[in-house]
């Protein structure tokens, strides 16, 4: 059956992998919250600094899932892991910054423009892992398990053996990131509506 084998919740002040806190924001630090995580986990991928916030969040959450679950992705060929991501505001945060570059700072910035599409994070994860599989980014009003279940079913029947799914909302006012891996296993939390809703809220459980 399809099982959720790993997941990461990245919120405004803490980051959890499989329900365990792996980073907590230091409000006194001069580094951005995402850079704090990058440094704490000694990730070495200088392209990280060039990414916009959506790509940084997607990159961090996918790397942390891999780190906490060694061997997780090694079982698959380079095109067998499909990426299914969604959010509510597309790339609005980077769109705003690009608009600022030509309205206020005088020149449209090419390095911002290339991030003004929500699916760029999929490209960044594909590049970082050399994954050639299926990619899809949808814009939904809110996190909807049915979207991942429906499309996951389709991709699984057309050759993708594992799914890396994500809800990726990073705006000026909040961070709500939930990445999860779906694989074929005998046991474990089923890839189901209720489990997705519950795990997407994992922050509350750990904060108690």
């Amino acid at each position: 059956m399809k099982v959720i084998t790993a997941y990461c919740n990245l919120r405004a002040d803490r980051c959890l992998v499989n329900g365990e806190v792996v980073a907590e924001r230091d409000p006194a630090s001069e580094d951005s919250w995402f850079k704090q995580i990058y440094k704490k986990h000694a990730l070495a991928y200088p392209k990280f600094y060039k990414m916009d916030v959506l790509s940084q969040a997607g990159y961090l959450a996918s790397e942390l899932i891999k780190k906490a679950n060694p061997g997780l992705v090694d079982a698959y060929a380079d095109d067998e892991i499909a990426l299914i991501f969604a959010n509510a505001t597309s790339s609005a945060e980077t769109d705003r910054r690009f608009k600022q570059s030509y309205e206020e700072a005088g020149t449209p910035s090419p390095s911002l423009f290339v991030y003004t599409l929500p699916n760029i994070v999929l490209g960044e994860i594909a590049i970082a892992n050399k994954w050639y599989g299926e990619n899809m980014f949808a814009v939904l009003p809110k996190f909807a398990p049915g979207f991942y279940l429906d499309y996951g079913q389709i991709l699984s029947s057309s050759g993708s053996r594992a799914l890396l799914c994500g809800w990726l909302e990073v705006t000026a006012t909040g961070t709500d990131v939930f990445l999860f891996m779906v694989e074929e296993r005998e046991t474990g939390p089923a890839f189901s509506h209720d489990n997705l809703l519950q795990l997407s809220q994992a922050r509350e459980a750990a904060a108690i």
Binding site: A88, T89, A92, D95, N135, M136, F137, V139
Partner: peptide
């Protein structure tokens, strides 16, 4: 509306055409 590039349009389409489901947006460049 830079902060809502799709959702308002989807809500309007659902209402205007009497759709049973909210339209789904796919944005892959």
């Amino acid at each position: 509306d830079m902060n809502d590039q799709f959702n308002a349009t989807c809500a309007l389409l659902q209402q205007h055409f009497g759709l049973a489901h909210l339209p789904l947006v796919i944005s892959n460049a």
